[in-house]
């Protein structure tokens, strides 16, 4: 007994309790270095996306023609080209834009007459609000439904949830949005048909957007939980006398979370796609509406700034998901 005691304290002195050991492992694997590396890669990705936007608008099309109404004369186009410096070599223009992107200067919005980036960021804040409400609905409900179904495969709960999620996955978002407006705004008058304001305004667009990720998250959670429940380590835990609830909490949840987490990451990313159409339908003044309007207004700086914000957010979401893996899946930690 004393030998065990001694070994244990010596061991504790050298490597600490398990919490500290985990933190130490993180440092050893240098989490900071990883994050910095990924951030650089992310910035590079955003710059490449912006270069593509630049290429499309400057090489394939003529920004001066784009910015002017269709009936503009050749002289007007020429005048604008000179004014905006579009008559200079493309390389010089690109270098100028590029240094602007790096310093966060995307030029002045031709439509609003204000710096483009703050405008884009401000409208993104509104998108973020809508996305948050959507995720607050979709993620917990999706996970709860998936857990309930996966714990007892082929029970009536499972069948009910499986069919509802199949419905959610197959319903087009814009159509659901219109349906919700018709039922809850026009007929029942519970919620406003469109516009921006408090939670009241966010409910319908958020629900319209939530159904698809909710259904997908429920499906993946269900199959992931059912898979894990059938694995040998669950039976082994049972032979050690663990109660079903404890097996679920201590073993199944974390294993089942790995594919669910991947999905949530990609759902957040695709939410950014779907949100454009929903913002237009519900007249929600977010980044999606901003992008559409800036395209309609032929406002190149604002288009570029909006794309930059969207790309940066996508990169960040991916980084956060990858970091979450570190906490859940020890294999990623090496």
């Amino acid at each position: 007994m004393t030998t065990i005691e001694r070994t244990r304290t010596a061991e504790e002195r050298s490597s600490g309790t398990s919490v500290w050991r985990t933190i130490r492992l993180f440092w050893a694997d240098s989490l900071i270095a990883l994050v910095v590396k990924r951030l650089f890669a992310g910035v590079a990705t955003v710059l490449v996306v912006l270069a593509v936007v630049f290429l499309i608008s400057n090489v394939i099309g003529d920004p001066a023609v784009l910015m002017l109404p269709p009936e503009a004369t050749a002289e007007q186009v020429e005048a604008l080209r000179t004014e905006l410096g579009l008559d200079r070599p493309l390389f010089v223009q690109f270098a100028e834009s590029f240094s602007g992107w790096i310093t966060g200067d995307f030029g002045v919005s031709t439509w609003q007459g204000m710096p483009a980036l703050p405008l884009a960021i401000e409208s993104f804040a509104k998108t973020l609000y809508l996305a948050e409400v959507t995720l607050i609905v979709a993620v917990p409900l999706g996970v709860i439904f998936g857990l309930a179904a996966g714990r007892r495969p082929n029970s009536w709960v499972d069948r009910l949830i499986t069919s509802i999620s199949a419905l959610g996955v197959s319903m087009p978002t814009f159509w659901l949005g219109l349906l919700l407006i018709l039922v809850f705004a026009v007929t029942l008058r519970w919620f406003p048909t469109n516009g921006y304001g408090g939670l009241h305004y966010a409910v319908l667009p958020a629900c319209a957007m939530a159904l698809l990720p909710l259904g997908r998250i429920a499906q993946i959670t269900r199959s992931s939980v059912a898979d894990e429940m059938g694995k040998l380590y669950v039976t082994a835990a049972r032979t050690r006398g663990l109660a079903e609830g404890a097996i679920g909490r201590q073993h199944v949840l974390r294993n089942a979370a790995i594919p669910v987490l991947t999905l949530i990451g990609s759902e957040v990313a695709s939410l950014l796609n779907g949100i454009v159409i929903i913002e237009v339908i519900f007249a929600w003044p977010g980044i999606g509406s901003m992008l559409i309007t800036s395209i309609q207004q032929r406002d190149l700086p604002l288009i570029t700034a909006s794309v930059a914000v969207i790309a940066a957010v996508a990169v960040l979401v991916n980084l956060i998901v990858d970091l979450a893996y570190l906490f859940i899946d020890p294999k990623v930690r090496r």
Binding site: K231, L232, Y233, T235, A236, A237, R254, P330
Partner: peptide, 13 residues
Amino acid sequence: FQDPMTSLDPVRT
């Protein structure tokens, strides 16, 4: 059990 590779939970120490 027979299979030592799958009778342990991979995400727990």
